[in-house]
Design a protein around this nucleic acid. Structure first.
Length: 395
RNA sequence: GGGCAGAUGGCAGAGCGGUCAAAUGCACCUGGCUGUAAACCAGGCGCCCUUGUGGCUACGGGGGUUCGAAUCCCUCUCUGCCCA
């Protein structure tokens, strides 16, 4: 049984229906993988995720390395056992953390004044930085990232990549692409080397396509990654602050040149509208913090009453104070089955954590249901109709 | 009946002669969040407009002192505590 099987290709777009076969079960694609950075999809249990039919989750190499440490997780029997999730796990390499920490964005973690809490240096060897947890110095290399992911025992590992922000001039992207290519080769070599002693002998490795928002560099990256040869490919360097159109352009350039029989992951994307479009452009799997983070911030995704698509609401608004309707009566989540807008608002305004939990459950279900609808639409050849006009609406 | 303390924006609560349309918190409004340093962040929050080193009305009511009062004085009303 091969790792990736394509079950059906949609006739009017690049969308395809497939299955990822991993040591911990299969993933029906197109799929959304909830983000569980620190070995937890914030606020929900593994059992709940299973119940909602989330098939794969994403965890983070960087965070788990620093705390509690990959060797500790190895001793616990691997990440699956450690967090009691027996389904497939995709681990991000830590490349994105280098990008976001180096930015020193002061909006994070209540840091309002002063210098970035991190001192990040990217060299060809790897990334050295000071950790925010305790100020200790660390160095992450492509080999180290693979070693950590091997200790975690994830089903799909990602190579460490260099993520340029937006906007970045072409010369820098070009240089960065050279670093990423070199790291790809080293990651591949290291993965082959330690595979036989890995906690998960069937762990797959994905290459990451970079190249900023320049067509020739993206195509160059696709070619370089294919040449090295990976089990699958992720498109990275998007959702870094660029306009949506630029992100979609990258997909138009790269996908036709990518190996057709390998799975394609789109890193960090996105809104429901973006995911639907990306599927049409040939992407298979997605991960994004939007459903979980925005839920904690009081934003809920709701199916649109008029037309196709969805709308978002902020549950804290006073207008929901006496609204005794379910947030979305077309939704089958726990929140919508049992509670009213008024109750959820009350929980948020009171700072009660159940509010955050219910909102998270709802948004995850919204995303998972969306993927289910996409898969069904591809299956029944109605996907192009679904894509057309699927967007965020006012009501 | 007597003594003391107090009355500030929707609420709580700073300010104690000018730099005060008034700190701060809550509430409220708006915006943001895309491989999670995020149960977070940013802005607004008396009224008016030509949106400005702009105008007007404001710190329980009334009356004073002063070039100038939320800030000092008198008085009224109300509130809290204490003594009869």
């Amino acid at each position: 049984m091969s790792f990736f099987e394509i079950k059906k290709k949609h006739s009017n777009s690049r969308a395809r229906l497939g299955v990822l076969n991993t040591a911990h079960g299969k993933v029906n694609t197109p799929a959304f993988t909830p983000i569980g950075t620190k070995a937890t999809v914030k606020v929900v249990t593994s059992e709940e995720l299973k119940f909602w039919k989330a098939e794969m989750i994403l965890a983070n190499t960087y965070h788990l390395w620093l705390r509690p440490g990959d060797t500790l997780i190895y001793k616990a029997g691997g990440l699956h056992k450690f967090m009691a999730w027996d389904g497939p796990i995709l681990t991000d390499s830590g490349g994105f953390q280098v990008f976001s920490l180096a930015k020193g964005d002061r909006r994070y973690a209540g840091i309002k004044e002063g210098k970035p809490a991190f001192n990040v240096k990217v060299t060809e060897a790897g990334v050295s930085f000071q950790a925010g947890e305790d100020g200790s110095r660390h160095c992450l290399t492509p080999e180290k990232s693979i070693q950590i992911q091997s200790n975690l025992g994830s089903d799909i590992a990602l190579m460490l990549d260099d993520v340029p922000g937006f906007p970045t001039d072409k010369a820098h992207i070009k240089k960065s692409l050279g670093v990423t290519k070199q790291w790809a080769e080293r990651a591949k070599r290291q993965h082959e080397k330690i595979m036989k002693s890995s906690i998960n002998l069937e762990q797959k490795l994905y290459g990451i396509i970079q190249g900023g928002f320049y067509k020739d560099l993206r195509l160059q990256s696709v070619a370089e990654m294919s040449e090295i040869g990976f089990d699958g490919y992720a498109i990275g360097g998007v959702s870094v602050g660029e306009p949506e159109e630029k992100m979609l352009k990258v997909l138009d350039w790269t996908v036709p040149e990518m190996e057709d029989d390998k799975p394609r992951h789109l890193l960090g994307v996105g809104t429901p509208g973006q995911i639907v479009r990306a599927v049409a452009k040939g992407l298979d799997t997605f991960d994004c913090v939007i459903p979980t983070r925005n839920a904690r911030h009081g934003q809920l995704f709701i199916n649109a009453k008029l037309g196709k698509g969805y709308k978002t609401i902020n549950i804290r608004q006073k207008k929901f104070e006496k609204d005794f309707e379910a947030p979305d009566n077309t939704c089958d989540c726990y929140l919508c089955a049992h509670h009213t807008l008024a109750y959820l608002r009350h929980l948020f305004v009171s700072g009660e954590m159940l509010g955050i939990r219910l909102a998270t459950m709802h948004n995850l279900k919204f995303y998972l249901n969306l993927m289910e609808k996409i898969r069904r639409a591809i299956k029944y050849e109605s996907f192009d109709k679904m894509v057309k006009g699927y967007k965020e609406r006012k009501r």
